[in-house]
Amino acid sequence: MPAHPNEPSLVSSEIGNLWMTYQEKTMILRFIEYFLAHVTDDTFHSILEDLYAQSQQAVETITLIMEKEKAAIPVGFKPHDVNEGTPRLWDELYDPMFLHMMSKIEINLFAMYVTMSYRQDIRQLYQQLTIQSQHIFDRLSTFLLEKGVLVKPPMVTMPKEVNFVHELDYLSGYHLFGESRSLNTIEVSLIHHAIETNLIGMQLMIGFAQVANNNKVREYFIKGMKLSKDVETSLGEFLRQDYIEPPATHAGKATHSKIAPFSDKMMMYLTSLLATFGLGSNALGSAFSLRSDLPVTMTRLASKILSFVKEGGEIMIQNGWMEEPPQIEDRRQLTKA
């Protein structure tokens, strides 16, 4: 029953999305606490404080909604998931690069959650979270551009006229004599985004692999390193064929620290979240590519990512780290009566 007579009950999509948001936001809070302990730049410090306050407010709002609905409050991630006093696991510019990537994920998630919400207060919550994430993304973009570490996609000649495709070979990606056609700007943008994200993910996996306490977890993060490298190499080859250098940056590298700043549980959750989001991005790239050879490569990579996600889920279950999302009633048992 709803908490108030005039307020409709939460539907399944709203409950599931609030649960997911609680997990992600409590994790972000823990990362910000760690970043705040090491930050030296005043501008980034201000961004961290604002993001922390916004994330804390989101957690409190979701908690209040759940309490009014007499629903169980998720566990999420607590202060004990961060080990205080640990040295840097990445250089100082990795922190804003990581949050820049996470803000992009949040923008996509929260915008989608708006469309899956029916109660007015839930729609308003995700509208506000979308705006906040966009604002943080904008501030981090400006910060990283000023630091010279945010690599832009390649410049192209401005189109002077409108053309239409007349040859079916355009879709195959090959001309009559077997040469591949050059990439269009849509394809370049999708490849660039995927490589940029995987470069940040690779450094994340390197850091996690250095500090994981559980041997099986450490081996899993090493697989994540290799998978990120495979994505970067495979997609980067499409750019190199057109004499375009794939994105790369001198900053955002893992240090040599061997002391874990986070619990294995939280590192596994984040890895699972990023890998799952990577599947979605891969599917989007395949859908919008007009060269058939690109979707073939992306499908191969998607198969590897899916296997990686499945293995991660098994590790989390074996260690009791996977918090179960709210379940619907199992009515299938009624058919067996």
Rank of each mutant, 00 (worst) to 15 (best):
Q327F: 09
E67L: 10
M101E: 04
Q241E: 11
K78M: 14
G285Q: 06
E106S: 11
R88H: 06
K336E: 10
P74W: 12
T185V: 11
E314C: 01
V149S: 08
S13P: 08
I136D: 12
E49A: 12
S228I: 02
D91W: 03
L18K: 01
M116I: 02
M66G: 03
H175V: 00
F137V: 00
L306T: 13
F208Q: 00
Y22T: 03
L294G: 01
Y174M: 09
T299Q: 11
F262T: 12
M266P: 06
I32L: 14
L10T: 08
T63H: 13
K216N: 15
E24F: 06
A209K: 00
P154V: 04
P295S: 06
L171V: 05
P154D: 06
A275S: 15
W19F: 15
Y126E: 08
S180H: 07
H250E: 14
E69W: 04
Q128A: 13
H175L: 07
Q327N: 09
L109T: 04
L301S: 09
L51C: 07
T255G: 04
E329D: 05
I315W: 05
E146N: 10
L10W: 08
P2H: 02
E92Q: 12
G278F: 01
D138H: 15
F31N: 05
T276S: 14
P295C: 06
T86Y: 11
T63K: 14
E161I: 12
R291P: 08
S180F: 00
H175N: 11
A251K: 04
I62N: 09
T299M: 11
A248P: 00
L273W: 06
E196T: 15
M112W: 09
